[in-house]
Amino acid sequence: MIDLKTLTMQVINGDADGIKICRIAGSTLVTIVIPRELLSEAKGLPEIPKRGIYYLLDDNKGRLKRVYAGQTVQGIQRLDDHNQRKDWWNKAVMFLAPDTEFSMDVVSGLESIAIKYIKEHGAYEVENTNDPKPYISPYNEAFIHALHDDILFRMALLGFGLDAVGDDSPGASSQIFHTLRRGVRGLGRYNAVEGSFDVLPGSKIDLGTLAGTKLHPNAKLESLRRKLVDSGELAPTGEGLHELGCTLHFDSPSAAAVFVLGGSCNGWTEWVDESGRTLSFVYRDSRTD
Rank of each mutant, 00 (worst) to 15 (best):
L4Q: 07
Q10T: 15
D15I: 13
A16V: 13
I19M: 12
I24Y: 00
A25K: 15
A25M: 15
G26H: 10
S27V: 04
S27M: 11
T28L: 12
I34Y: 06
E47K: 15
K50P: 00
L56R: 05
K61M: 03
R66S: 10
I76S: 09
H82S: 04
Q84L: 12
M94F: 10
A97I: 02
V107K: 06
L110Q: 06
S112N: 07
S112W: 02
G122Y: 09
A123C: 05
V126K: 09
N128C: 11
I144R: 11
I144H: 11
H145T: 08
H148L: 07
L152C: 13
R154Q: 14
F160M: 14
G161N: 13
G161R: 13
D163W: 01
G166F: 00
D167M: 03
D168L: 07
H178D: 12
R181G: 04
R182Y: 09
G186Y: 01
N191D: 15
S196I: 01
D198Y: 11
S203Y: 09
K204W: 03
I205W: 03
D206A: 08
L210R: 14
L234H: 08
A235I: 14
G238F: 08
L241M: 02
L241W: 05
G245T: 00
C246L: 05
F250N: 04
A256R: 11
W268M: 10
W268G: 13
S275A: 15
V282R: 15
Y283T: 14
R287N: 07
